[in-house]
């Protein structure tokens, strides 16, 4: 019997079906930007990796992927856990990463420097997985673009100052650019590079679907 909390514990209990549920949540998140997805899968990754981040990593990462970890997440426990459950390579170079996992983002500079792909191969870009506390920030964004019928209200917590400008610059690179996957404790949402953000300050309600 293994002690709990080791690298071999806490992965998918059903490799095949859990991965399908995780992927369905990601596919819905990216095809309907800003909508919150709650894949009901139980995984127990080492802190500070959140369960939802772990689900994304277990669903998408394997020996063919390269992952970048920020200072907070880059612990030996996390590296060992990812190595055992996914076999993914870890890199220190932002530009080489297919996936990046970030926990504490202090400034937009933390989100910069990742691969945006080329004009010929815009798919060779980094998908940034950003851990957030939740999705009920006072600062609400109004999203529009592909996947959104009219407009969607989106309020991830703890984004750095200047995020809308960062995102507008990313949007301007299209078809190049990064895609963002936000993970809270039990929900995930995404901003593909096509989504436009309109800032909406204050507590009053905005239209949402």
């Amino acid at each position: 019997m293994l002690a709990t909390g080791t690298a071999v514990d806490g992965g998918f209990s059903n490799q095949v079906l859990d991965a399908q549920i995780g992927f369905a949540a990601l596919m819905n998140a990216l095809s309907r930007p800003g909508t919150l997805q709650s894949p009901g899968i139980h995984v127990v990754p080492p802190s500070p990796l959140s369960a939802m981040t772990a689900i994304v990593a277990l669903t998408l990462c394997d020996a063919d992927t390269v992952v970048w970890l920020d200072e907070t997440v880059n612990t030996s426990a996390v590296r060992d856990w990812l190595a055992f459950h996914t076999g993914t390579a870890i890199t220190a170079e932002k530009e080489l990463a297919q996936f990046a996992i970030l926990d504490a983002v202090r400034s937009v500079a933390d989100l910069q420097g990742f691969a945006a792909g080329s004009q010929e191969y815009p798919d060779r870009s980094t998908s940034i997985i950003l851990q957030v506390a939740g999705f009920s920030s006072a600062q609400k964004f109004q999203l529009s673009g592909p996947g959104i019928k009219e407009v969607v209200s989106f309020a991830p917590e703890g984004l750095p100052e200047g995020f809308p400008d960062f995102w507008a610059a990313n949007r301007a690179l299209f078809p190049r650019g990064v895609d963002l996957i936000f993970t809270s404790k039990d929900q995930l949402a995404a901003l593909p590079r096509t989504t436009r953000i309109d800032e909406k300050l204050g507590g009053h309600d905005v239209r949402s679907r």
């Binding site: 992927f23 990601l26 596919m27 990216l30 095809s31 669903t59 998408l60 992927t65 297919q98 815009p122 798919d123 870009s125 998908s127 592909p146 996947g147 299209f174 078809p175 895609d179 593909p192 590079r193 096509t194």
Partner: peptide, 12 residues
């Protein structure tokens, strides 16, 4: 294939 699908959705 799933990674490719997610990129395809992001770059219509």
């Amino acid at each position: 294939i799933r990674r490719a699908i997610l990129k395809a959705i992001a770059i219509p």
